[in-house]
Design a protein around this nucleic acid. Structure first.
Lengths: 316, 316
DNA sequence: AATACTTACGTAACTACTTACGGTAATTCC
DNA sequence: GGAATTACCGTAAGTAGTTACGTAAGTATT
């Protein structure tokens, strides 16, 4: 199919599907040729059973052949109806269904052997016609996917793209509303707004900037989607606070950009330590802080009720 | 999945299926991430349409993306409902349905572009982690399959195996019944038994062997499954005749074994030419004769009504 | 012009899996 | 020792394709 070369690797799923269909279709005819009473779809289950003398559970078969347990359950039902297997509840554990090849199923093993040998040989030849080692490449692909699936790989590209389209700018008067609303949004969602919140959110100029802090805003395609503040504690210690990203802009890696920017500001201001307080309930936030380099510490209790975790980042 | 290394290449179809499922599943999430109103399964159709300005027919899309026309028909229906395409009967040919991207569909193209770029990049990276070139290997595999599909490759192994289990023996008195029945079986199926048939089938000793001919029988697992005779025409010319293989033993390449054996006999007898008469209706037989090296000739008319083709093989 | 064949298409039913869900048995946690 | 959680399994419904089949339109043949 030249289509796949034209579309490129995006259609890799379709390509596998198509190949699978081709092979499945041929398999049906091959099973017919050898006239063994085994449906092609039963083969993986049959194979596993033929190597397990004492019987084996549904989910263990599923695990071995990489299907869902539901699939195995259905396959076994079919094989049972065909008289190839017997299944009964385990004596030790009443949940498990122990499946064994019946005498009839056992009798199939030598008959399958010829077919197995011939098909294997034919496929080997097919694969040998290629200059690349497909079998190995498939193994490598599966290993790579196991290590990190495609979704998370694409997510990374996505975030990078979104981040490139996001500008981090310094706070100015026109951001005051956005700054307040972004923060109220998440506080109200998870907690109750406290008095100390209102104070700093309503007038960040006096409560944060004037005492020597900083505020940055994230703008995506012209609209403000996130913010983060740095509050001066003393000459060497600053607190990261008021980190907020709008609902719609989550998952774009904007928190990461804000964090990076605010740490940069802290460095510029001569900080040696950035401190923060949060709540373990906010799992994604904690994960972000950890990724930014923050480590958990225990310090004096926070004035905010909602905080149950404190973290710090040492700057050098 | 170590299962596939354990089972070997026989499970290649399952392996493709599994990979396809993995990618399809990830694709669903990726499409969600980019929030384009396009279902993953629509992508191939969408892709083709985005490259065809003037509209394109259902079956042409199917041909390009390698689906069945029915599949495309269903996909287009879905896309139509989603407002992405419009379709109408062609003015020139009332059978064809011309499909074009709607304005809404066109608007999707730039939105898809980012996703396309990111996914392609991610998959490329995934593939690059392997030491073997999977993409190329898949192309090679498809090309090999196009040239000769798996079924016919396996069939070859199957025939070789069956042939190895088949013995070719010389005719002796105890084969007389089998010789007659095997031949009557196919003559009655396709034609009417003629007087000259009965003569030679009832007493092959006098009509074939005594005048200097030969008969061989094919035995598979102890039972006679085929026969072939050589009739002396003169010192240099022999006729291959009475080739018959039992219904149940067809497709095992037994005709080939019989033909080879009888040609060997002809050579031993000092023949320079083997001649035969047949009917073009019997396509598999003609194909076999051709494979054995026979070429079509025109000679004097045959005494058998059913014969409409004559062939010859020169021996050196 | 009537007839037979071919082509394009859509619908229905099937395939080989999946996820979702619910029931039951075993295990863990106070 | 009871409650909550976890594990195992089967059934039902969904998915992305397929084949089978019927219909309508076009083409070739007599």
């Amino acid at each position: 199919m030249e289509f796949f070369d034209r579309v490129g690797t995006m259609a890799i799923g379709s390509r596998f599907r198509r190949l699978s269909d081709i092979f499945t279709d041929d398999a049906r005819h091959i099973y017919q040729l050898y006239d063994v009473g085994l449906e092609p779809k039963w083969f993986p289950v049959f194979y596993v059973l033929s190597h397990e003398d004492g019987g084996i559970s549904t989910s263990e078969i599923a695990r071995q052949i990489g299907h869902s347990h539901a699939s195995v359950s259905q396959l076994v039902k079919g094989m049972d109806r065909a008289g190839l297997v017997t299944s009964e509840r385990s004596a030790e554990d009443g949940r498990v269904n122990v499946i064994v090849l019946s005498a009839e199923g056992q009798a199939l093993i030598p008959k399958i052997r010829d077919q197995y040998a011939d098909v294997t040989e034919a496929v080997q030849e097919l694969l040998a016609e290629s200059h690349s080692d497909l079998w190995r490449a498939l193994g490598d692909l599966e290993a790579s996917l196991e290590e990190r699936d495609l979704l998370s790989r694409v997510k990374q590209k996505y975030q990078r793209r979104q981040q490139a389209e996001t500008d981090i700018v310094d706070y100015s008067a026109e951001h005051s509303e956005a700054f307040r609303d972004l923060n109220l949004e998440w506080i109200e969602r998870y907690f109750e707004v406290e008095d100390s919140d209102r104070e700093s959110l309503d007038d960040p100029q006096h409560t944060i900037l004037d005492p020597g802090g900083a505020i940055v805003m994230a703008c995506h395609h012209g609209t403000v989607v996130g913010t983060c503040a740095l509050i001066k504690m003393d000459d060497e210690r600053y607190e990261l606070a008021k980190m907020a990203v709008s609902e719609a802009a989550r998952g774009k890696g904007i928190g990461w950009l804000l964090g990076r920017a605010i740490i940069e500001r802290a460095r510029d201001l001569g900080a040696t330590t950035v401190y923060l307080e949060s709540n373990t309930m906010l799992t994604p936030a904690i994960a972000l802080y950890r990724k930014l380099g923050f480590k958990r510490v225990t310090g004096p209790p926070s004035p905010y009720h909602r905080c149950n975790i404190q973290m710090e980042l040492e700057l050098h």
